[in-house]
Amino acid sequence: MLGYIIRRILAVIPVMAIVAVFVFLLLRLTPGDPAAILAGDMATPEQLARIRESLGLTDPIHIQFINWVGRLLQGDLGTSLISNTPVMSMIGSRIWPTLQVGTLTIIISVLIAVPMGVIAAWRHRSWIDYAVMSFSVLGFSVPVFVIGYILIKIFSIELRWLPVQGYASPSDGIGAFFSRALLPCLTLATIYVALIARMTRASLLEVLGEDYVRTARAKGVKEKYVLFRHALRNAAVPIMTIIGTGFALLISGVVVTESVFNIPGIGRLTVDAILARDYPVIQAMILLTSAIYVFVNLLIDISYTFIDPRIRY
């Protein structure tokens, strides 16, 4: 197992290298000039040229690339071309809201979706099953910002239970954190509940038709053990996969939700950086996102061995 983990981590290096080269070149081919954004509307061509030079944008691309990689290998992600702030500190302050909202969303989603999926499968073709499936279709189909606005309208504007927007760190108080995080998490959870519930139901239905489930029931095993010990455990591999990739998706940036609820997370940071052609920030964010995906996939693969003893690396 340890050997497998080390091999997987080592395999990340070429992946990240390819991502780095690709992203760097792609950004340089995209139209846009950070100097024009920095200088504003009134800058003359001569002033723009001077700013471009001071930002190092007039160097040949291969020199820019070597400089960037050189700094990257020393753990320096560079400095924002626009705000002149170290990229590391920008990401450092923006990743926590995203991580916290993402984690809470996944916890809420799993707590709701897995029982929903189990019950839907258990009561296959009953009204509960149809209700769960209808909710799933709705969860997929309604745009996330619409759900956000509806929840704001009900809980913030009409009932005045929760704030409309904003983010508070858990260090500001658990009440303040949850009161601000709850609506965005519920908004995001709508999609993930739909996704995980569907996957749980489908996997479980397949397993519930297996011989060993029939045997267990014939032996008089209690239904809860049939469902949760025999069936769900055997159906868990695809469910874990969907939860893991869902988490990676959440962490890599949920721009719309961050915008609707005014959460200063990395999704907004990435979009702002793209709009401003802030190359060092975009490059760092794409590398970070790739790393998150690779890491989450590794965790998912490792989790398989705990769920299914037949899987060995």
């Binding site: 606005y149 704001i152 913030s156 504007i157 704030p163 409309v164 927007q165 915008s259 609707v260 005014n262």
Partner: peptide, 16 residues
């Protein structure tokens, strides 16, 4: 900064 114009309006009306 509030990237969503509707959110800013809601926040003003709610007194945030």
């Amino acid at each position: 900064t509030m990237p969503d114009a509707q959110t800013a309006i809601n926040a003003l009306v709610a007194g945030e």
